[in-house]
Design a protein around this nucleic acid. Structure first.
Lengths: 339, 339
DNA sequence: CACACCGCGTAGACCGTTATACGTAAATCA
DNA sequence: TGATTTACGTATAACGGTCTACGCGGTGTG
């Protein structure tokens, strides 16, 4: 009785339900969408049939006219330890609203990102959340015309076609830098990335915060942004070269924990006294930062909160909101032994 | 000419292409599926129209009769650092075959896993890859009847309805244990998990390997499997309690780096001499293991290879293969300072 | 020369749902 | 009581593809 009846004759469809309940197909559809014009008696009949037959509507067919209740999440790349908490927050909101999230990885390459967004549109997903996309703001806007969209990790408060949710990266960087300054340090460098085309990337915003904090402390002439190469085999300065500077910096603010952890390792291996000779603060408060052997001070972005807000924002955009929304989440400085 | 024509009148469909090329809708469909019965002349005409109009077929509509060229990947949870390399391998194969992968997270809860697999079926995805699902083999088999399926991290070589790809976890555990024994140690414990319902989980297989290696060395009476609680707030022994045993183990083989790294940290914090007083070997060779400050010996599963094989297997299953396939990938011991 | 066959292209049913238009009976109003 | 409205169901046209069946002109075969 609980199941088994569904097996014979392949997938069971809305027609079978209609037949079983002795009503029209349209009636069943109405019940499911709880549309206008169904009596309590009919609703009950239909609902009984639905779970007697263990009926599940085909999302694919649904997509041709109505909603699919699925939303796409485009991730830069999977290795970023910031993502799990972000997804936790988003999933919670989405699943409560009966939506399912499907993620894809863009590998930080624009061509792949484009093809994946297209694929999500073609699957008739109801909306997309993009995390730190490489695509230009212009291109994002053009996609946003085709599908409701929220972007995380992309600072473009002027965008009108889509919404954004971000950590207040500038504030976070200021907090980190100010903390290093408060420790009596003056020679403080920032480890960042080579400037790419986009002015909307998070590290750009963090650089601004670093510079602001230095300037406020009257250290504007000590500002130094160290743009390390991203891949070992590319050209450009290495992260570890920071330690060979003469004089060696008293403090380093890293745009990301990924690099901060590596720098901290290198420093300790070289026998540098952290934090007395060199203090380090990272960004993201990744799990590795919290390991006692590492003990890296870092900025907590509150990823779960960001994910939650992004999902909320997307749902309201799907619900019809047309006025853009750009949210900043206040970060937090987590102090450990590295500073 | 390059674009812009597509804008007016909404989404462009197969009809527009047919009209533009001056052929029937069926003809366009044939060209796209490169089905039998199209002349070179027609193929060319149609293809020109397709990219003149920047036409992309609706996956949703396609799903109602044919393939969607999308496959679903169900992940246990996102925090497992083994996943990115796995996905790298799978993505490569899939994208070469013109498939797109969409991931969802089951949060290690059976109910969520079920609902997500259903969602993937309802989206008419062409196949699914499950990573370390919590579902029983029986349930997996019933889903496998509805959709081509490959399971990773689930040792059930007797399964016929679906395929499996796994690291040879038993061998890996033997290698790790044998290495600890070769260092002259006899009191070697294994840190594992509480036994759950499934006998197919990877840690069960790793336990077998550990016991085999101990037995082969004549240490069968020294076998000790330490089942730590999974969450801090649950009942059961803590991981760190291993260090309070009297006598303290000379070596610990951890079923996963996640725990090995924590144990190593705890040991060093307590001032225990690693590896002389206590040697540790983990499993997964996660990025953290490779940090100089950590230096954890670990078993490399070769996730990329596993992902690659899983995708290959799935594609051949989609292609019609009916005979089950169960693949084991040989792991590798990576030695560092912890052992 | 009648016939089967092949290559190419089209017509149209079909997939499973949504949503609009419409019919009918009961309830409300003047 | 006749005229409107209201409530509830159904029929049916989309939606955007796939795929089977078939038509048609040209070739080879007996």
């Amino acid at each position: 009785m609980t199941d088994g009846s569904a097996k014979i004759g392949g997938k069971i469809t809305i027609k079978h339900v209609a037949q079983d309940a002795g009503v029209s197909v349209a009636a069943v559809s109405k019940v499911m969408r709880n549309a206008y014009g169904v009596s309590d008696a009919m609703r009950e009949k239909v609902e009984r049939s639905i779970d007697r037959l263990a009926y599940r509507p085909s999302t694919a067919a649904r997509g041709m006219r109505g909603r699919t209740f699925s939303i796409g999440v485009l991730l830069v790349e999977m290795r970023n330890p910031f993502l799990p908490s972000l997804m936790d927050g988003a999933q919670k909101v989405l699943s409560e609203a009966n939506y399912r999230a499907f993620m894809s990885v863009g590998e930080a390459r624009a061509a792949i990102e484009k093809s994946l967004i297209n694929a999500m549109i073609d699957l008739k997903m109801d909306g997309v959340i993009l995390v730190a996309p490489r695509l230009s703001g212009e291109l994002l806007a053009s996609y946003a015309k085709q599908i409701p969209m929220v972007v995380i990790g992309h600072h473009e408060p002027g965008a009108t076609a889509f919404d954004t949710v971000n950590s207040d990266d500038r504030l976070g960087a200021r907090m980190a830098t100010a903390h290093l300054i408060a420790g009596g340090r003056e020679n403080i460098q920032m480890a960042s990335l080579p400037r790419k085309n986009g002015d909307f990337d998070v590290y750009v915003e963090r650089e601004k915060g670093y510079i602001e904090a230095m300037t406020e402390a009257g250290l504007e002439n000590r500002v130094g942004v160290w743009r390390m190469r991203e891949h070992p085999d590319r050209a450009g300065p290495r992260l570890a070269d920071l330690l060979d500077l003469d004089p060696m910096p008293q403090g380093v603010f890293c745009w990301s924990d990924i690099h901060a952890v590596r720098l901290l390792n290198e420093a300790k291996v070289r026998g540098i006294d952290v934090p007395n000779q060199l203090a380090i603060v990272g960004y993201d408060n990744t799990p590795a930062a919290g390991l006692p052997l590492i003990g890296l001070s870092s900025i907590e972005q509150r990823g779960t909160e960001i994910g939650r807000l992004a999902a909320d924002t997307l749902l309201s955009r799907i619900g019809g909101r047309a006025t853009p929304q750009h949210i900043l989440v206040e970060p937090e400085l987590v102090l450990r032994s590295s500073s």
